[in-house]
Amino acid sequence: VIAMPSVRKYAREKGVDIRLVQGTGKNGRVLKEDIDAFLAGGA
């Protein structure tokens, strides 16, 4: 999974398994917005 360390930390704090999140950034990078969208109700 491609993600910046700050995004990985954010996901950990929110209790999200970053491997389950679909990245929308360049080359499938997971963004902070992707974590929020995942929490809001889905992949």
Rank of each mutant, 00 (worst) to 15 (best):
V1F: 07
V1M: 08
V1L: 09
V1Q: 09
V1R: 10
V1H: 08
I2F: 03
I2H: 07
I2N: 11
A3I: 09
A3M: 04
A3G: 05
A3Y: 03
M4W: 15
M4Q: 14
M4Y: 15
M4D: 15
M4E: 15
M4I: 11
P5A: 12
P5W: 04
S6G: 12
S6E: 14
S6A: 12
V7C: 06
V7A: 06
R8Y: 10
R8P: 08
R8M: 09
K9S: 08
K9T: 08
K9Q: 14
K9R: 13
K9V: 08
K9A: 12
Y10K: 06
Y10S: 06
A11S: 05
A11I: 01
A11T: 01
A11Q: 01
A11H: 01
R12E: 15
R12I: 15
R12S: 14
E13M: 14
E13I: 12
E13N: 11
E13G: 07
K14S: 08
K14T: 07
K14N: 11
K14M: 15
K14L: 13
G15M: 08
G15W: 05
G15Y: 05
G15C: 07
G15I: 03
G15D: 06
V16C: 06
V16G: 00
D17G: 02
I18L: 11
I18F: 03
I18W: 06
I18A: 02
R19P: 03
R19D: 08
R19A: 12
R19E: 11
L20P: 01
V21P: 02
V21S: 01
V21K: 00
V21H: 00
Q22D: 08
Q22V: 15
Q22R: 14
Q22M: 12
G23M: 02
G23D: 01
G23F: 02
G23T: 03
T24V: 02
G25Y: 01
G25P: 01
G25E: 02
G25S: 03
K26V: 13
K26E: 14
K26P: 15
K26W: 09
N27F: 12
N27K: 11
N27T: 05
N27S: 09
G28F: 05
G28P: 02
G28L: 04
G28Y: 04
G28E: 05
G28M: 06
R29G: 08
V30S: 01
V30H: 02
L31K: 08
L31I: 10
L31A: 04
L31E: 11
K32Q: 08
K32N: 05
K32E: 06
K32Y: 09
E33P: 08
E33F: 07
E33Q: 13
E33T: 11
E33K: 14
E33A: 13
E33V: 12
D34V: 00
D34M: 01
D34Y: 01
I35F: 00
I35T: 00
I35R: 00
I35Q: 00
D36R: 04
D36A: 04
D36W: 04
A37N: 14
A37M: 13
A37I: 10
F38H: 08
F38M: 06
F38W: 12
F38L: 07
F38R: 04
L39Y: 06
L39T: 06
L39P: 04
A40L: 13
A40E: 13
A40V: 11
G41R: 13
G41Y: 12
G41T: 14
G41N: 15
G41F: 11
G42K: 14
G42Y: 13
G42H: 14
A43Q: 14
A43D: 13
A43E: 13
A43V: 14
A43R: 14
